[in-house]
């Protein structure tokens, strides 16, 4: 399935909903969109992988790139994922120790204090 990208705002968070296949061919489009969001001023970004049915190392590399960029800018980055096959990918690569992973967007937004509790 083709890559789909949709953005919405939840409080101070920018939620990017990703669907389809994120691989060596489509990952550059995900990278571009994340850069647009960050360059456009988004500082608290949540990427919702709920409708992703394939994710490879190139896609993971793009997500790590966004995490680093937001950390440098004093922002935050979190992922929403509750599918076991995808969670296994994060465990095997040890990236589950790098990304904040949440089962729902609500949990991600609630767990990412944007100010006082940080």
């Amino acid at each position: 399935m083709e890559l789909s990208l949709a953005t919405r705002t939840v409080g101070e968070h920018t939620v990017l909903e990703v669907g389809g296949e994120v691989d060596v061919y489509t990952a550059p489009r995900l990278r571009e969109r994340l850069l647009e969001l960050i360059d456009g001023g988004a500082r608290h970004v949540v990427v919702d992988l709920g409708r992703v049915d394939f994710l490879d190392s190139t896609g993971l590399g793009v997500l790590v790139g966004a995490l680093k960029r937001l950390r440098t800018a004093g922002g935050s980055f979190a992922l929403v994922c509750d599918k076991e096959p995808l969670l296994k990918i994060f465990r095997i690569t040890a990236l589950d120790q790098v990304f904040p992973l949440h089962p729902t967007v609500d949990a991600a937004v609630g767990a990412e204090p944007t100010g006082a509790n940080a």
Binding site: S57, L60, G61, V64, L67, I89, V98
Partner: peptide, 27 residues
């Protein structure tokens, strides 16, 4: 790559993707 290196600022995107790709193959 070990987890503490994955988010290391100095790691290039190419090196990260290669390391992660190999971790997936081996895993």
């Amino acid at each position: 790559l070990p987890p503490d290196e994955l988010a290391n600022e100095s790691l290039t995107d190419e090196a990260l993707t290669t390391g992660v790709g190999f971790a997936l193959l081996a895993g």
